[in-house]
């Protein structure tokens, strides 16, 4: 069978697999994107983990523990997908810990109330789904396949977030206020999750040409707004944007201008929680070094014993 070239594969909407030839820049772009995605999953454990000990019912506590556990699982598949490109997890973690690779800015916002757990599920996981569903058709096979499973779980997470907010919004006045406050704080940062506007997104065109990205940032942002506004109505909560209205002519919701200068500040490390998130992650990694070293030493001893016995 004749070897199919990278360009031909992309033209045919085929999948690139780990052993296929691929341009270095394609490989590097994927490593950066998949690693950033994996880092986002594990940093994302922190804001929700913040409420595990205080979850207001045992049922909610169990659901939240399972959800944060899923995020660790997503991190694992994504690091494994990145490893198919010839890097290893320890190096990627090192790049996260030294600030050379980023994670999603949304996790630099604090979870100040229980309702924030609901808002993260509904809005943040909702935005993540809009971003990630097209990645199930990404040109790189292992990433695309990891995304299929991740998206299924995210969809469950989004529904549980919606359900938390629905319960709060239809509960006591204090619970309703808690839900509204969470949505007020998480709405704009969620819109920022789609990245800078299209005319200021330098790498988008190339990622589109490579079949890594299928829709532009602004298209995905619009899709998210269109999907979310009717859900907010069902919840009985308002979205904090006075310009939000149905635009009959375009067949989409019109919305106000996202403050991308805030996004730039958060990316630059000046968000409300950047320092705390990194200190927590690096602290856990450093505190665990003796445990990882012990596991390695034990495995070597065991291997030597097996060899000695053979």
């Amino acid at each position: 069978m004749p070897e199919v070239t990278f360009d031909q594969l992309l033209a045919d909407d085929g999948r690139v697999e780990p052993r296929d030839e691929m341009p270095d820049a394609y490989r590097r772009t994927l490593i950066r994107q998949i690693a950033q995605h994996a880092h986002s999953e594990i940093i994302g454990m922190q804001p929700e983990g913040n409420w595990i000990s205080r979850a207001p019912s045992l049922r909610r506590k169990a659901i939240l523990m399972a959800k944060v556990q899923d995020e660790a699982g997503h991190g694992l598949y994504l690091y494994a997908a990145a490893e198919t490109l010839g890097v290893d997890r320890a190096d990627l973690l090192d790049q996260l810990h030294t600030g050379r690779q980023k994670y999603s800015s949304i996790f630099n916002y604090p979870t100040l109330s229980w309702a924030d757990v609901g808002a993260i599920g509904w809005l943040v996981d909702g935005a993540a789904i809009v971003n990630q569903v097209p990645l199930c058709r990404c040109s790189y096979g292992p990433y695309a396949r990891a995304m299929v499973r991740v998206c299924k779980e995210e969809s469950f997470h989004q529904r549980q977030g919606f359900e938390i907010l629905h319960t709060l919004a239809h509960g006591s006045p204090a619970q309703h206020a808690m839900a509204q406050d969470a949505v007020d704080r998480y709405w704009w940062p969620s819109l920022m999750m789609f990245g800078p506007p299209d005319d200021d997104s330098p790498n988008s065109a190339r990622s589109m040409a490579w079949g890594i990205k299928r829709f532009s940032n602004d298209e995905l942002r619009q899709r998210f707004v269109d999907m979310t506004v009717p859900q907010a109505e069902v919840l009985g909560l308002t979205l904090p944007d006075p310009e939000l209205r149905w635009d009959e002519e375009r067949g989409h919701y019109a919305f106000g201008t996202v403050d991308f200068s805030e996004l730039q500040e958060v990316i630059a490390g000046n968000g409300p929680c950047n320092r705390d998130r990194m200190a927590h992650r690096v602290g856990a990694h450093e505190d665990g070094a003796w445990v990882r070293d012990a596991a390695t030493a034990y495995a070597l001893k065991q291997a030597a014993r097996t060899e000695g016995a053979a």
Binding site: I42, M45, G49, S53, Q69, A72, L76, H280, G288
Partner: peptide, 16 residues
């Protein structure tokens, strides 16, 4: 308490 604080990711999953 260990969830997000374990020595490695596999252990976050196991302790959860």
């Amino acid at each position: 308490w260990w969830i997000s604080r374990a020595p490695e990711l596999e252990e976050d999953l196991a302790l959860a």
